[in-house]
């Protein structure tokens, strides 16, 4: 959202926004199970909350799997339509974000299969999920640090797409290993940790220097 649109919107809405912030904050304090249960019971605010907080991360995640932005958009739309349709009979969910990420991935694969046939399914997983080290966030105090960041970047580019995906879910999305296991379909949580461990091991030499 661009700053000038904010300026234009904010003053005229100020009377109403506080209410929405209140409901926003009240859901923020709830556990995922509670939000999901409220959604299942038909609570519109719960639906709004999930949409508001998760649609942007879902879109970004989906775009890593398919470059077709229109397709990603359709898939997200479809997932939310299904969610509303199945209210009352939704099965238990412990983590909304991980669950919806996983739904989105399946939906994108399903649509890609429909469009292009079976064999292309896994293609994007291996070279996808590029990572870019943000220089703003890194403290570069010396010249040699700059060199090091470059080396880390190169090493990250050498990782597999799945390894990079795990790092992004862990560090950028702030997910736990359990959630990562959920999204990446590991039956055991420790497999997710192992995947991250292997990715970091190949960085160890550079990091220690």
């Amino acid at each position: 959202m661009k700053p000038h649109t904010q300026e234009a919107q904010a003053p005229s809405l100020s009377a109403t926004t506080s209410n929405y912030n209140d409901s926003f904050l009240s859901f923020q304090a709830k556990t995922d199970e509670e939000i999901w249960m409220a959604l299942n019971k038909g609570n519109e605010l719960a639906f709004n909350y999930l949409y508001r907080t998760l649609v942007a991360p879902m879109y970004r995640y989906g775009c890593q799997i398919s470059k077709d932005k229109g397709l990603v958009k359709d898939c997200i739309q479809n997932i939310f339509i299904q969610l509303r349709k199945k209210r009352g009979t939704l099965s238990e969910v412990h983590n909304c974000k991980a669950y919806l990420f996983s739904c989105l991935k399946h939906e994108i694969f399903r649509r890609m299969k429909e469009l292009r046939g079976e064999h292309l399914e896994m293609m994007t997983q291996e070279d996808g999920f590029p990572i870019c080290l943000s220089h703003e966030a890194i403290l570069i105090q010396k010249e040699q640090e700059c060199e090091k960041v470059k080396k880390i970047q190169e090493a990250l580019d050498q990782l597999t797409g799945r390894q990079r995906q795990a790092l992004l879910l862990l560090y950028t999305e702030g997910m736990s290993y359990q959630e990562i296991a959920r999204v990446m379909e590991f039956s055991e949580v420790k497999s997710a940790r192992k995947l991250v461990y292997r990715a970091l091991s190949s960085l160890r030499q550079i990091l220690k220097y």
Partner: peptide, 12 residues
């Protein structure tokens, strides 16, 4: 940890 960002980061 803070510097790891999506290389391809489309905004909705």
């Amino acid at each position: 940890i803070r510097s790891v960002k999506y290389g391809d980061d489309p905004e909705i």
